[in-house]
C-alpha cells in the first residue's frame, strides 16, 4: 500500500505551505489572505496524514487532522463575518487602509 516514500509527502507539503505563506504576504485583500491561510492549514494536514500511515492501530495523526479541519471551518466563518462588518464600516477590503479602530 505504501509504495510512496514519506519524504515526497513532506516535500509537497512544504511547497504548499510556502506558497500559502507567499499568498498571505502578497495579497492586499482580506479574502486573499484567507485563501493563503487555508492552503497553509491543508499543507500541515498532509504532514499529519503522511506520518499517520505508520500508526495504523491508533491513527493519532488522522484524528489531529480532523480537529484541524473543524477549527479551520470555525475560523473561516468568524473571519468572513468580521470581514463583512469591516467592509460595511470602511467600504474597503484592503488591510492597509483599515488603520483606525473607530472612524
Amino acid at each position: 500500500m505504501t509504495s510512496i516514500p514519506l519524504q515526497h509527502f513532506l516535500v509537497v507539503a512544504a511547497a504548499l505551505f510556502c506558497i500559502g505563506l507567499a499568498i498571505t504576504i502578497t495579497k492586499r485583500h482580506f479574502i486573499g489572505i484567507l485563501l493563503g491561510i487555508e492552503l497553509m492549514l491543508n499543507a500541515v494536514n498532509i504532514n499529519l496524514v503522511a506520518f499517520s500511515q505508520y500508526d495504523p492501530e491508533r491513527l493519532s495523526g488522522q484524528l489531529f487532522a480532523l480537529f484541524v479541519i473543524v477549527v479551520a471551518a470555525a475560523e473561516v466563518t468568524i473571519a468572513l463575518a468580521i470581514i463583512l462588518r469591516v467592509y460595511g464600516h470602511y467600504q474597503t477590503v484592503d488591510p492597509d487602509e483599515v488603520d483606525q479602530l473607530k472612524k
Binding site: M1, T2, I4, F9, N45, I46, V49, A50, S52, Q53, P56, Q62, A65, L66, I69
Partner: peptide, 9 residues
C-alpha cells in the same frame, strides 16, 4: 490523503 491511506479524511 487517499493515497496516504486516509480514505475518511
Amino acid at each position: 490523503y487517499i493515497l496516504a491511506g486516509a480514505d475518511f479524511l
